[in-house]
């Protein structure tokens, strides 16, 4: 294992210290428990938006804390969900009396820990709503699994719901909006290589040079199918087809197309994939109205990419375009 670290057990705290030093104008970072909070939180009259999950997916979620997106993020240890006390501390840090919305990716541990935090907050009289994202079409049979995983839609949802919260929407409206965005989005990912968790020191699974893993999640867990390596055009079709068929997306739809890098793939390849996705969607009469290309929800050093498509209407488009000022996403300001 070759990594730019000092010691595996210090990676998360040292990365947070780096974020604190780099972005003191936007965020405050707490060490115990780990918390990233918007510098000016709590904001009077605004519903607090929080999220969190294991570390190793940077810039998600800490990189999305700031004006127009999240009020706080709770980073867990690498690929391990945060704990209830930590989430409760985030709720306390952002609650301005109008309630708090938790955005949770559908993983067993995350769902349980956020549920326990919501119970603790409710016992204190704080209004907390939870929306669980589950956009990963790679999980074919939700009945026989823990359900579809929350992946790329989480980033888009945090931006859109964050914009609505900034504009003063109430907790019920934001909850409904978050559920709507989750329902209109679908994702599928693939890996060229497995990732290496620092404290494990070797890749999470073996992937031969001539094979790829389709339907991976974001924790270095193996995917659903292993297939032969193929040109970008074919891989793009393998990712896009199950997404398009699942919603289904139809001729005339307008979408936000998100091409996400898993952490170890250069941007030049992500643009090749965007080019292929654009051709595929154009051929089916689907119009890309907005796009996001880059490493936003990663699995450490995994090479590979994921597509997320979100069906857009004018309202969602306006919220996407609204100003955002965070370490990882910023425009309009």
């Amino acid at each position: 294992m070759k990594k730019l670290i000092n010691a595996p057990e210090d990676v998360v705290s040292e990365a947070l210290a780096g974020m604190a030093a780099a972005h003191a104008d936007l965020i405050r970072v707490h060490a115990d428990p780990f918390l990233i909070v918007r510098a000016d939180a709590p904001i009077a009259g605004k519903v607090g938006i929080i999220s969190g999950g294991g570390s190793g997916h940077e810039p998600m979620h800490g990189g999305f804390v700031g004006r127009g997106m999240l009020d706080a993020a709770c980073p867990g240890h690498i690929f391990t969900s945060p704990v209830p006390d930590q989430i409760l501390a985030a709720i306390h840090a952002v609650d301005a009396g109008r309630g708090v919305l938790q955005i949770v990716k559908n993983y067993t541990g995350d769902v349980m820990n956020f549920a326990m935090a919501a119970e603790l907050a409710a016992a204190e009289g704080i209004q907390v709503a939870t929306v669980v994202t589950d956009d990963d079409v790679a999980v074919e049979n939700s009945t026989w699994t823990a359900g579809r995983r929350g992946v790329g839609i989480t980033v888009l949802l945090e931006k859109i719901v964050g914009a609505a919260a900034e504009a003063g929407a109430d907790l019920a409206t934001l909850t409904a909006l978050a559920q709507h965005v989750n329902a209109e989005g679908r994702s599928m990912g693939m890996a060229l290589t497995a990732c290496t968790v620092p404290h494990v020191g070797r890749p999470g699974f073996d992937l031969p040079e001539d094979e790829i893993e389709l339907g991976i999640g974001i924790h270095g867990e193996p995917g659903r199918h292993r297939v032969a390596m193929a040109p970008a055009a074919q891989i793009a079709a393998m990712l896009a087809t199950p997404i398009l068929e699942d919603l289904p997306f139809q001729h005339g739809d307008q979408v936000l197309a998100f091409v996400n890098g898993m952490g170890g793939t250069p941007l030049i390849e992500l643009y090749v994939m965007y080019h292929e996705l654009n051709k595929l969607l154009t051929a089916q009469g689907i119009h890309i109205r907005r796009r996001l290309i880059g490493n936003y929800i990663t699995a450490l050093d995994m090479a590979g990419c994921a597509f997320t498509l979100l069906r857009l209407d004018d309202h969602l488009t306006q919220l996407w375009d609204a100003p955002v000022l965070t370490p990882a996403l910023r425009w309009g300001i």
Partner: peptide, 12 residues
Amino acid sequence: LVSTVGGASGPL
């Protein structure tokens, strides 16, 4: 355990 383990095994 709830406060330190995380994941699914902490709450369980």
